[in-house]
Design a protein around this nucleic acid. Structure first.
Lengths: 207, 207
DNA sequence: ACATCGGGAGAACGCACGTTCTCTCGATGC
DNA sequence: GCATCGAGAGAACGTGCGTTCTCCCGATGT
């Protein structure tokens, strides 16, 4: 049963270090030092670095989507819920250790070399798109499938732009774009200016 | 004068290898082997790997934007020229060695560790946004600045989505979104359906 | 013909990686 | 009290990195 505590500590260290410095730039010994777990036990929990990387990405996917969904679910109106996604993004972008999308970063670093990483990134994107699809469907969009695709594009664009430029305001630009796309898809009850509707108490994002 | 030929050969090899496999995954010896330039000369041309990486990114920025601009300039109507960007993207996404945005990939891999790489990525994004701004301004958009931001987001989203999913159709979804955003910004002469207007002879993208 | 120089090939160096192995020590069973 | 076991600490191993150094050869000037 201590095994699962060791696993948690390892994944915590892996997430901080891999996300903060890149996968290839962080060695197994650094994860041992940060987690306090012996190297022997590390290799008992995860047979190789690639296995640890995959576990890190899978857990991060669950936590990231969970935090996003928790924030969005707190918005009462289904019509504005899709826009609340971008408020959560803005809070995330403002966190000091924000460094872009963990999945895009890992994929860019090793996509060609690691099938497990490529699949984790693909799965994450598919899950996010599915989540957005549910939101726009509940918001009453006509033809929700292409709208979900469009919002997913805008979300990814906002994340990468915010990462490279270091400017969290990319979220606001993305929100504006999303409002236009939603209105064009027949989602009513959303006026482009009425941002304060989804502002206010903002649960802390999980990075 | 052979020096500039050696430099070109080195940058060609660097671009193929760094873009295809990631920066950290490619060693200097592999670039020497692929370029046919001796290691001594390599270090005469570029004093360190970081210098070579930066030169690779700077040259790629010029070539990438040049190829995009050449394709877009061939479109007669200023109003549809912004949409032609996405046709060029679609052709690029379909190339067999497409692996996403070189700048986002390099930034995700080393952004925290290399100021030169981070700056090259930031500069590239700024240049692209400036180019889009010129396009939407010429297309007659009201308030072109935020529209340029929005289109830049959509472009980045399309690139990363196409890279991770491997589906070039992300460009078509992005084009649809861009058409909606352009129409909302008062650019006339663009109907969302009329895609064939910018299709047709399509100059080969440069990767 | 011969000294001089530049450049190519690749060995060498110091380091860090992922992974495995060894040694030691403290807890447990009888 | 003593044998047994599991686990922690970290040394060891093989490899590959970025970078520098050595050696050798062919071209050139006189």
């Amino acid at each position: 049963m201590e095994d699962i505590e060791a696993e948690d500590r390892l994944l915590d260290a892996a997430e901080t270090l891999f996300y903060g410095h890149g996968v290839q730039a962080v060695g197994m010994d650094r994860i041992r030092a940060a987690s306090g777990v012996s190297l022997k036990r590390l290799y008992q929990c995860f047979a190789s670095k690639e296995e640890l990387v995959e576990a890190y990405l899978r857990r991060r996917d669950r936590r990231w989507r969970g935090a996003l969904a928790a924030h969005v679910a707190a918005v009462p109106s289904a019509a504005v819920r899709p826009l609340a996604v971008f408020d959560w993004l803005e809070a995330w972008f403002g966190e000091p250790d924000f460094r872009g999308c963990a999945f895009i970063n890992a994929f860019g670093e090793m996509g060609a070399g690691s099938a497990a990483v490529a699949e984790a990134a693909r799965d994450h994107k598919a899950e996010v798109r599915g989540y957005l699809l549910g939101l726009v469907r509940a918001a009453g969009a006509t033809d929700p499938e292409p709208l979900a695709d469009q919002l997913a594009l805008v979300v990814d664009g906002a994340i990468t732009t915010a990462a490279v430029t270091g400017a969290p305001e990319a979220a606001a630009r993305a929100r504006d774009a999303a409002a236009v796309l939603l209105a064009a898809a027949g989602v009513t009850g959303v006026n482009t200016e009425g941002r304060e509707k989804t502002r206010g108490k903002r649960s802390r994002a999980t990075g």
